[in-house]
Nucleic acid binder design. Structure first.
Lengths: 207, 207, 207, 207
DNA sequence: AATGAATGAGAGTTCATTCAT
DNA sequence: TATGAATGAACTCTCATTCAT
């Protein structure tokens, strides 16, 4: 007892951490499949095998678990994005860096979440985006908006420009996740080329 | 019932049609403001002044009214898109035509719906897209996909290409609706230029 | 249809009123038997034979039905008390009037509520006082407090005095309700005599 | 367990007793502040710093701790009341004795409980009476009932009489506790005078 | 004996839908 | 056909109690 007192994880602590993670994982899946509104707390805990009340030992509400997921994603992603941005000398490099960071995150997250719902079974009224993806995407969007506001980007209509860049990044990213193998390099190359040069800028190949 | 059934539609038929339309209008607003999940049937009928049960004389469920709205949008839009496409000799013209048709539809719909919810009051987890907008957007997407599949588009990765074009069209369209006055020409020009030439293709102006 | 349009109660209105009353009656019983905290909305509706959700067609919450009951009692009682007070020339008459009004109300309410729960089965932690009784009692208490504050009462410690008078009124009233037949006159006489003259003032009889 | 079981109580026994007392103290406060229904076991143990489960090492249920408190109060109070009653030659002295004993108990209990909840913050539907107060009050009531049954009291309606005496005792006692300093003598004098002579019997002073 | 997470029944409440009027 | 009250399943959340540690 005396020794272990320094750092006694014990079964209790282990299950506690494991349960919390189980709830987060289940919540991620459920939010991804059903969307925030449709998803119920019961959907989440049902997937964990825990009892209904147990959810509330870990999170105070449906919203809180959503936020936890989102901010976890943002927290992990922010330094990656920052590092990538730091290396960028100009707008082109910045875009490349930001999108690559984003796609790396998506790919990694996707791998570790073992997202095994059968694709194509999309329900109506649903987005198929986990809270983390949403949060991380927001980071990228903010970075792009900021860069555009700073004047780093070409002098076109900045509002439309931001919307377009962001849209490309998001949608190509989503497509990337649907393919096997997940090809971050290729997706990044495509998105960046599309943003920089449109159809004319694309490598006229691989069709 | 026997009298009213003869050709001159009679008051009954008129109200019937009017009620159906009132419900559709209310539903469009409510779905646009609240999203499908959050919107309740009561929200919809409350806006019409009709009674709760009356809703079910016209639609069998909440879902059905959503679908009705969506397919109405698609039905109205399809010929417009078709006409525009018919005039297109090549991919460039096709993109231009499709996007313009889409934006014209958006602008028109927007105008006639008198979308007067105070902007900026967006709730979390909600998209602000009516079923019609969603449906019409799907038409555009399908057209682009089809065109790409047909080989009309430049020979880049067609899946990514479609995703990117569609994403630009959608997001720039949404931004367009948020501005006053609604400038279909400008938005179309931007979206098309972005798709064709990326940043380099944009008119380097108006910042 | 034309005639009835002036005042068409119809079965609907009737049931509506009846249901509202049924809920109020059930709520009164349940609150009286179980107390506010212990009583559940389900306890209330179960007694009416209605469905769970129906409760919320009539009252927005458990609290609202309690308040409705209480204010209904107060509303009915206030004019009675006022009338009785108006006739009182002095403190003695005022006390007599107020208590009599209170007891009359209790007796009447009791009669019409057909309070047929088997007496003696009082649960622990429970008061056996309906919201109406509580509300009406508050009226009496306020009247006494007011009168004492106005100096109408004998010059003893007013705080203690009020507490004592009120306590007597309440407890004797409760005893009165437990007896058959309910003897308002006798209870009033006792309470007033006790207040005015204590044990010495009581009619030394009927033991 | 074997060691600690020998006579010198050892730390274990001490903590055991201390914990039990801590729970009782916390429970008294919580029941007094919140009432039985509203009070939760968590409210109680939170105040002790103990863990939730520990509560059930000492009491089998929320109800049991309530009962323990009540019977502890009664057990302590019974001899005091008995002693006071023994000295009473007649009804007047008995009443005086019983009420004084009751008020002494209240005052003492109140002092030692350091009841420091901000007054005036009374919630609706809540009484502000600890289980002990309720239990001790019951003792007094029983004594009065007994005395009346024995014919010691003046020959008025005994049921009403008991109710009235008890009511005065209780309410004046409660007021007494709300004042500073707590004046047992004065409260007793008032209550006894009121019982014996009603308003006419009161010292016509201190208003 | 102490801990505190897990449990699950049950609370208040909402809402799509039904149905008597 | 219009009405709007009735329905009841399902929701979020609480809490007394249990039990592995």
């Amino acid at each position: 007892m005396s020794e272990a007192a320094v750092l006694p994880p014990g079964k209790r602590e282990l299950t506690k951490v494991a349960n919390r993670q189980a709830i987060l994982d289940a919540a991620r899946e459920v939010f991804g499949e059903l969307g925030y509104e449709t998803a119920t707390v019961r959907d989440i805990i049902r997937r964990t095998g825990l009892a209904a009340g147990t959810f509330y030992n870990y999170f105070r509400s449906k919203d809180e678990v959503y936020l936890a997921l989102a901010s976890e994603g943002a927290r992990q992603f922010a330094p990656l994005l920052k590092a990538q941005r730091a290396q960028s000398a100009n707008w082109e490099e910045f875009v490349q860096a930001a999108i690559e960071a984003y796609y790396l995150f998506l790919a990694d997250a996707h791998k570790s979440w073992l997202n095994q719902r059968p694709p194509g079974e999309t329900q109506p009224h649903v987005h198929g985006e986990t809270p983390e993806m949403a949060a991380v995407f927001n980071e990228v969007r903010d970075a792009i908006l900021e860069e555009i506001a700073r004047g780093g980007a070409p002098a076109a209509d900045p509002d439309y420009l931001a919307a377009a860049c962001i849209a490309i990044a998001r949608e190509v990213g989503e497509k990337m996740l649907a393919r096997r193998p997940i090809d971050v390099k290729g997706a990044t190359a495509f998105a960046v080329a599309m943003i920089q040069g449109g159809l004319k800028g694309l490598p006229q190949a691989e069709a």
